[in-house]
Design a protein around this nucleic acid. Structure first.
Length: 800
RNA sequence: GCGGAUGUGGCGGAAUUGGCAGACGCACUAGACUCAAAAUCUAGCGGGAAACCAUGUGGGUUCGAGUCCCACCAUCCGCACCA
């Protein structure tokens, strides 16, 4: 007898839609389980997307059975480049394709019967939604956190838009891989750096994978040190550098400025002017990728000197592109003895190397930079001091001598927030010749995205919106005079940085969400999604949440309490993608095997946090299992089996296995446990019919994984309410115990036999039985030691 | 270069955290059923004739190591001149 997934799955899908399993109740605690929402692409969902969605659905259903009222919503990250590019390619308006794609995605999502709260659906392109995306921007503008700046930014020549630093990977565009160039553009920036410390410090509160926390911490890149002024020889001017190693100040023998440094040209003496000019020009022509790849040091001497405030020595000033203009002060003091890069530079250009830290206080011939801590030498009054201590002492000294100050530096840069593309939220700003940039009053939001004839990117640094004169020209909200609308749009991240706040109160037209409702549901208890957003979406969302906390719009500072990153699914050794032609669509699998089988295979394919290889044959295994399971239960319904010691034991062992593995997110082993125990119970059922309670327990445990089959069998057992009305069963360790134990016997750590003894046997008895079992091997040897680990193993140590 | 993760049969992977390595499944082999095939069922399935050898390699700790420690190799990921 085969189970008919084509009949029972639609039946229960319909049933759950009419009577949701996840009913609110006064006394139920809340649980907010969230998936990273997809952008609705034209190719639909593939089995890789399903993996995360199945995980979160299993988790949600488990939480329902544990008595929580679960919020498990879904929505659409529908603005942005992918949607727009797809629309351009199809020659349809993005709004049209997006709506169509959403319909398709929704149908697919329904097919796994994920218990999404569709009443709470959000769509970032809905004006009722992006009204609040714009509202947040206005609030940031009012707080001085959104500002305009003209500066060289990362520009993708293929996407024809500016990018945030976070969107550049290996010198290429995060979306399309095209090499990023620099372009001088007027930009809207968000001052995420104002939150650097909080974004860093609060990481420790989060139950997130260490890897993601570390990636964010490295991205924020906080380092402690000092800024120190070096007087230019023969001038009144001085140059400020940042260093994390004030302990090496005595060893600074030269200085290097970034070629873009404002003083670079000015410092060049007549003799060196031409060379300096050439170097500055050459550097400006090099691409960032080129600069990144060749680490061979280049540089040029300016002819000028600074004076080392500690040693008093004259230090030549050089220019080199290994010094970055946008970190620290764009100038460094060079200590070749104790910094690898400086050592390389000094060696190449024949600059002096002066050791000021030595391992044991003994100066030695350096063949490479000594970068570790040690004892101070050649450092005047600080000689003999531990260098770690000297960091502190010399920093203090710098401050008291008023030649600098202790400083903290971050790698994090402000967020380039404007995009020169059509399909995004208009930035709600009017440029007034008299008042400057003025925010559109919040009661006039949303600023709707107008229709436009050509929504293709212009590539000029202007967005397509700039071509719509009657939209661009407007009145200044402040003075009523003529003004022009901002024509840049927001990046895709704008809508996704706060969507999790909208779900619990998706229809609210008074605020982004009701504070009381937010208080109830937020923060998100479990957030499931891919690792690719480690420093993009996840950092931006944390920043938005902290800002909204500061203006009193929300009452918590971190949006996602727990994060789980599922691994990617690949095929033929590659990530699934349309271009590689290795995409496996779930639709056919649902049709042929049913959603229960697909769900279980998604779990069974491998440890959820690791990447996995899709095996087309693999789903056969879980399909066979579900058939076996079906047969086992249907054959035992109505047989009136009685509970036995054996069935009670197996039942409690099963509850234990499933519960513990669920709690630790070892989903692949849940499926194997289920298979194992189904095999055991099938053997058992050959002798003795399964009792009611055992069968019911099996169904409740299976329900989160394979809800349709569990629900159907539950009904066939005679129940009239859903299997999800049950409480998750509990196990009793006493009842799990075996009557007899199989104890392996080792001699000198090698397996030599096996005995079976009653579970409560005394040590002496076990050892005697064990020795009798391997008696032949004990003849003529000395027994040195007898080890018995209760219930586990016997090891006899002998000497020949 | 720096940092992190991973490494177990033909394949995906288990191993109660130091105690029977290879659970569970895929693939494969043989048998049953069938005119035949599919499906299903039964049995087998790391290597070796065996003693034994096997968890990337080499050491170490331990009565006992896939698990702990040291060194190395390979693969993947992140960062990449951040002073």
């Amino acid at each position: 007898m085969k189970y008919e997934h084509r009949i029972i799955e639609p039946k229960w899908r319909k049933h759950w839609e009419e009577k949701p399993i996840n009913q609110p109740a006064e006394d139920k605690p809340k649980y907010y389980c969230l998936d990273m929402f997809p952008y609705p692409s034209g190719s639909g969902l593939h089995v890789g997307h399903w993996r995360g969605y199945v995980l979160s659905d299993v988790w949600s259903r488990y939480k329902v059975l544990q008595g929580y009222h679960v919020l498990h919503p879904m929505g659409w990250d529908a603005f942005g480049l992918p949607a727009e590019n797809y629309a351009i390619q199809k020659g349809e308006h993005p709004a049209v394709c997006t709506a169509e794609n959403i319909r398709n995605f929704k149908k697919q999502l329904r097919d796994i019967s994920a218990i999404y709260n569709w009443d709470n659906e959000v769509n970032t392109t809905d004006p009722d939604y992006y009204r609040w995306t714009q509202w947040i921007f206005v609030k940031m503008f009012e707080a001085g956190l959104a500002y305009e700046k003209e500066m060289p930014i990362n520009w993708c020549p293929s996407c024809k838009t500016g990018l945030a630093n976070e969107e550049v990977k290996d010198g290429g565009c995060e979306r399309c891989g095209t090499e990023v160039t620099k372009k001088n553009l007027r930009q809207w920036m968000l001052k995420i750096t104002a939150y650097a410390d909080r974004l860093l410090n609060d990481l420790e509160k989060l139950d997130w994978p260490e890897k993601v926390k570390k990636m964010q911490a490295d991205w924020i890149g906080k380092s402690f040190g000092a800024e120190v002024d070096f007087k230019v020889d023969g001038r009144e001017q001085s140059i400020r550098v940042f260093t994390t190693r004030p302990d090496t100040l005595y060893g600074a023998t030269f200085m290097v400025l970034a070629p873009e440094h404002t003083l670079a040209l000015e410092l060049a003496t007549d003799q060196y002017k031409a060379e300096v000019e050439k170097y500055i020009f050459d550097t400006s022509m090099r691409s960032s990728v080129d600069r990144m790849q060749s680490k061979e040091k280049t540089g040029v001497f300016t002819g000028s000197y600074v004076l080392n405030p500690f040693s008093g020595e004259k230090m030549p000033i050089w220019l080199s592109d290994y010094v970055l203009i946008d970190y620290g002060t764009g100038a460094i003091m060079c200590v070749p003895a104790h910094d690898e890069r400086d050592f390389e530079f000094a060696t190449k250009f024949g600059l002096p190397i002066k050791q000021v830290i030595a391992k044991d206080g003994e100066v030695s011939e350096l063949t490479e930079a000594y970068t570790e801590a040690g004892i101070m030498v050649n450092s005047g009054q600080f000689n003999g001091m531990d260098s770690e201590k000297a960091k502190e002492v010399i920093s203090d000294y710098v401050e008291t001598q008023k030649i600098g100050q202790k400083t903290v530096n971050f790698k994090l840069r402000d967020w380039v927030f404007s995009r020169q593309r059509y399909w995004g939220e208009p930035i709600p700003i009017v440029h007034c010749p008299k008042c400057g940039p003025v925010a559109v009053p919040v009661e006039e939001l949303p600023v709707r995205l107008p229709d436009v004839k050509s929504y293709e990117p212009t590539g000029t640094g202007e967005s397509p919106l700039a071509a719509i004169d009657d939209w661009v020209n407007t009145t200044c909200p402040k003075c009523g005079g003529h003004g022009k609308r901002e024509t840049n749009t927001m990046p895709q991240w704008a809508g996704s940085s706060w969507y999790f706040l909208r779900y619990p109160d998706a229809g609210n037209d008074q605020a982004l969400a009701d504070p009381e409702i937010l208080k109830k549901w937020l923060p998100v208890d479990m957030y499931v999604g891919g690792i690719e957003h480690a420093v993009l979406h996840l950092l931006y969302s944390r920043f938005y949440t902290k800002f909204l906390f500061d203006i009193g719009a929300v009452s918590f500072e971190e949006p996602f309490t727990r994060l789980f990153n599922q691994g990617m699914i690949g095929k033929n050794g590659a990530k699934m993608s349309k271009s590689k032609g290795n995409v496996v669509s779930p639709d056919e699998l649902v049709e042929n095997y049913g959603s229960d089988s697909l769900r279980m295979y998604e779990l069974f394919v491998g440890p959820p946090e690791l990447d996995a290889e899709w095996d087309d044959k693999g789903i056969d295994g879980v399909y066979r299992f579900l058939n076996k399971f079906w047969n086992l239960i249907t054959e035992n319904i109505g047989k009136n089996g009685q509970e036995t010691k054996e069935s009670l034991k197996l039942r409690h062992q099963l509850i234990y296995e499933i519960t513990e593995r669920l709690n630790t997110f070892r989903m692949n082993t849940i499926v194997s446990s289920f298979m194992e125990y189904t095999n055991k119970l099938t053997d058992y059922a050959k002798k003795e019919a399964l009792d009611q309670k055992t069968m019911e327990t099996m169904l409740i445990l299976l329900a989160p994984l394979a809800p349709h089959i569990a629900e159907e069998l539950w009904e066939q057992m005679g129940h009239t309410v859903s299997v999800f009305e049950n409480k998750w069963p509990e196990y009793d360790k006493e009842l799990m115990k075996e009557d007899s134990l199989n104890i392996p016997i080792q001699i000198n750590g090698k397996m030599r036999g096996m005995i079976s003894v009653p579970a409560d046997s005394a040590k002496e008895f076990v050892l005697e039985t064990a020795k009798a079992e391997v008696a032949a091997r004990l003849e003529g040897v000395t027994l040195v030691k007898e080890i018995y680990v209760p219930g586990k193993i016997v090891n006899l140590v002998i000497k020949e």
